[in-house]
Simulated scan of single mutants.
Amino acid sequence: MADHDETWSEWQDLVNMTPAALKKWLDTDESKSVGAGEGESVGHQSGRHILRIKDKKKADLTEDDWSHMAKVVGYIKRHTAQGGPKSDKEHSAWRYSLMNWGHDPLK
């Protein structure tokens, strides 16, 4: 597992949505439309945790926060590597899922 400095650096690079943009996104039907299962998806829960992390100072982050940040970094790296659909990336489940995790691949 990466150390905190490496996690912080990757997090800053990959989580490219502002708290305001992420909060607005999480309130949309599109955000709630991706993810498997009943109830709130893992990605949607992750987005809410990302908002709580972004509301803290680095010095105030808990081990749970650091663990979640590393999970977010890994998720974003794996899913951006897939490249998404060849057409209409803007309205794809691939993009919507990444946005739940704080990353807009079109930015």
Results as ranks from 00 to 15, higher is better:
residue 18 T to W: 04
residue 18 T to C: 07
residue 18 T to I: 06
residue 18 T to S: 15
residue 19 P to E: 05
residue 20 A to N: 10
residue 20 A to E: 13
residue 21 A to E: 15
residue 21 A to K: 11
residue 22 L to V: 06
residue 22 L to Q: 02
residue 23 K to Y: 07
residue 26 L to V: 03
residue 26 L to P: 00
residue 28 T to G: 05
residue 28 T to E: 00
residue 28 T to V: 04
residue 28 T to N: 01
residue 29 D to P: 07
residue 30 E to T: 14
residue 31 S to Q: 01
residue 32 K to P: 01
residue 32 K to D: 15
residue 34 V to K: 02
residue 34 V to R: 03
residue 35 G to A: 10
residue 35 G to C: 10
residue 35 G to M: 09
residue 36 A to I: 06
residue 36 A to Q: 10
residue 37 G to W: 09
residue 37 G to P: 10
residue 38 E to P: 14
residue 38 E to L: 14
residue 38 E to C: 08
residue 38 E to M: 10
residue 39 G to H: 06
residue 42 V to L: 15
residue 43 G to R: 00
residue 43 G to N: 05
residue 44 H to F: 08
residue 45 Q to H: 13
residue 45 Q to D: 14
residue 45 Q to W: 08
residue 46 S to K: 02
residue 47 G to D: 02
residue 47 G to T: 00
residue 48 R to Q: 15
residue 48 R to K: 15
residue 49 H to F: 11
residue 50 I to Y: 01
residue 50 I to F: 01
residue 51 L to Y: 09
residue 51 L to P: 07
residue 52 R to Y: 05
residue 52 R to T: 13
residue 53 I to T: 04
residue 55 D to M: 07
residue 55 D to P: 04
residue 55 D to A: 15
residue 56 K to D: 03
residue 56 K to P: 03
residue 57 K to N: 15
residue 58 K to M: 12
residue 58 K to T: 13
residue 58 K to W: 12
residue 60 D to P: 05
residue 60 D to E: 14
residue 61 L to Y: 06
residue 64 D to H: 05
residue 64 D to G: 08
residue 65 D to M: 06
residue 65 D to Y: 02
residue 67 S to K: 09
residue 67 S to G: 12
residue 68 H to S: 09
residue 69 M to F: 09
residue 69 M to Q: 14
residue 69 M to N: 04
residue 69 M to I: 10
residue 70 A to R: 12
residue 71 K to G: 10
residue 72 V to S: 06
residue 73 V to I: 10
residue 73 V to D: 00
residue 74 G to L: 03
residue 74 G to Y: 00
residue 75 Y to Q: 04
residue 75 Y to D: 01
residue 76 I to F: 00
residue 76 I to W: 00
residue 76 I to H: 00
residue 77 K to T: 13
residue 77 K to Y: 02
residue 78 R to S: 14
residue 79 H to V: 10
residue 79 H to S: 08
residue 80 T to M: 06
residue 81 A to S: 12
residue 82 Q to S: 15
residue 82 Q to R: 14
residue 83 G to R: 06
residue 84 G to K: 05
residue 84 G to T: 04
residue 86 K to E: 13
residue 86 K to W: 04
residue 87 S to N: 14
residue 89 K to L: 12
residue 89 K to C: 11
residue 89 K to W: 01
residue 90 E to R: 12
residue 90 E to S: 15
residue 90 E to A: 15
residue 90 E to C: 06
residue 91 H to G: 08
residue 91 H to N: 15
residue 91 H to S: 13
residue 92 S to T: 03
residue 92 S to F: 00
residue 93 A to V: 09
residue 94 W to A: 11
residue 95 R to H: 03
residue 95 R to G: 02
residue 98 L to Q: 01
residue 98 L to S: 01
